[in-house]
Amino acid sequence: MKTIELQINGAAHEVSIEADETLLQVLRNRLDLIGTKKGCDSGGCGCCSVQVDGKVVYSCMMYAAGAAGKAITTIEGLGDGGTTLDPLQQAFIDAGAVQCGYCTCGMIMNASELLATTKNPDEDQIRHAIAGNLCRCTGYTKIVDAIKLAATRIAGRAMESPE
């Protein structure tokens, strides 16, 4: 066991881990951040997507030790932690992009990176961005709709309050 410090959603967490524990295992099993889901544990489904320094990673494919000193964002870090949601979370609700919900958090974390780097992405950009996140319920139609809706709302807000 060794002790590392992880910066998660803006807070520091000191955690004792085995050297080969993945970020996913530490988030779920040691820190109870259960919004990050395990779908395959082999980098194939995207349910465990989180952001590390603003980039989406499959947390099942990253050693926790490798994330030390980096800014980790999980689904619990979106919105204000209360009833105010991130525009993507709200759009997923409004567009009906949630069915069983197991892929949802990873999908939102992935889309969140896209919208942070690409204003008003077109449909091709959205579909390619989420191609690493599998969903078996929706056929992706309403997920794509939700990401478009969030992008439009974010752009609208930017228009209202130009910096």
Binding site: I34, G35, I75, I93, D94, G96, V98, G101, I108
Partner: peptide
């Protein structure tokens, strides 16, 4: 009509209610 799914808010904020979380 299409009223909001009662489970949607929790599912987009973390999804606590799955058996895998027990």
């Amino acid at each position: 009509t299409s009223p909001q799914r009662p489970d949607a808010f929790d599912k987009v904020t973390g999804g606590k209610g799955f058996p895998v979380n027990v």
